[in-house]
Design a protein around this nucleic acid. Structure first.
Lengths: 236, 236
DNA sequence: CGGCTGCTTGATCGCTCTCAAATGGGGTGG
DNA sequence: CCACCCCATTTGAGAGCGATCAAGCAGCCG
């Protein structure tokens, strides 16, 4: 499930925001104590409630974070893509992973032991800076979603979720834009706080109007502009 | 609206988590470049959309953060109390304040210029560490609220919001627990993603059952245990 | 005392969830 | 290579929670 992989060259880390503005030596040093991981599709990285002993940076692929309430309700926290931090929150205050992480696509990651984090932060203030920026960014995203969930209708929320997914993993193809990792209606429902059934109805209606297309866990946006219009509720 | 106040002694900062585990000298140094502020009740600290030039730590009082959508929907992001950071998110990635901050109670704060933040973080890794912990904690809270909003009924969400408010500013009085800062039904509605009317109905029902009491922007919890029961949905 | 602001309460409507069942595409095993 | 099965998806009907619209009430401050 979790295999070793060759240590990536420090250079590969240049484009990862977590390492931005670090000197080449610093990057090499940080990379040296990192454990590279490789996950097959659907492999589990960690489970909700596990003790948080490591944190990760996604190099490649897509990690899906799902949270389950005591009552059994599931919620898709986010998809983490290249450059994103995973499992960093509990690290800073200790404790367990708040969600289950699994690979939506075959993925490569770097892992660091929780024990190393203090040392890392103390030696490289730039890392702390980058981590703060990434966390700040995530807070902004969460507030945005919270507001959408509080104020908007189901259709609009789904439109926004799709726009976000396109930003994360949109791939131009001849028919439009394809989301390059598998997303089911159920996933979209858990992402937007609604039900599988409502998502299916909305997507069917959009397909009717030629805005989207797709199939089993596949979504293609044919008219991105129209989708953005729905997301921003431009018609009144 | 914003008055100067005497510089607080470094010692006063010991209990503020942002300064936890700093040496006395470091604390004194950080405090030396801080600007103390004092706000009267209802005074505005900053407005949504203003350029984020400073960030704040609340020493005393209560700061209310409200966000407005382009469509005019309002949402109460949170109440920040003693020890909480305010306005720190845009700082780390630059940009504008995402919400309007005003004082729900007369409040004292410390402010730092955005220009100083890098220097501060580089010189005192402990501060970066504390900031990361505080931000991580906030992320946890936001995820929790997101999940509640997605999965729970209005009554339960209001119960949870009240429990949270009690934790932040609950004061024991003879009749039960009083929330020691003004909270209107409208505030509760914006906090839980519902309407003034629904909040009023729910609170009236609870008052009928002797669980709470209160009046104009005042809430007293008479039977905290019952409220927690509602928040956790113990009766199935 | 008067007006304002916050709160209550009623009636109705509609969005979305819930429950139910059928359909179809893809992958797997024989 | 084919057939079967499973899982994602579609679609329908109905109920109900909570929003919306509409007044009326009451405490508090000036």
């Amino acid at each position: 499930m979790v295999d070793d992989a060759p240590v990536p060259a420090g250079d590969a880390l240049v484009q990862v925001e977590f390492f931005a503005d670090l000197s080449a030596e610093a990057r090499a040093e940080v990379a040296a104590i990192a454990q590279p991981l490789q996950l097959a599709a659907d492999a589990t990285l960690f489970r909700q409630g596990d003790e948080a002993k490591r944190f990760f940076v996604v190099l490649d692929g897509r990690i899906k974070l799902v949270r389950t309430t005591p009552e059994g309700h599931q919620m898709l926290v986010r998809y983490a893509g290249p450059g994103d931090l995973v499992g960093c929150v509990p690290l800073f205050e200790g404790g367990d992973y708040p969600a289950t992480a699994s690979a939506a696509l075959p993925s490569r990651l770097l892992a660091w032991d929780a024990d190393h984090i203090d040392d890392l932060l103390a030696r490289h203030p730039g890392i702390a800076r980058n981590a703060l920026r990434l966390l700040g960014h995530e807070i902004g995203e969460l507030r945005q979603r919270l507001q959408e969930l509080a104020a908007e209708r189901v259709e609009q929320r789904i439109a926004r979720a799709l726009v976000r997914l396109v930003r994360q993993g949109g791939e131009r193809i001849e028919e439009g834009v394809l989301i390059d990792f598998p997303v089911s209606r159920q996933d979209l429902a858990e992402l937007t706080g609604t039900t599988l059934h409502s998502v299916s109805r909305v997507l069917s209606a959009w397909q009717e109007r030629g805005i989207i297309d797709g199939g089993r866990r596949r979504i293609i946006i044919r008219r991105p502009h129209a989708l953005v219009g729905l997301a921003e509720d431009l018609d009144h």
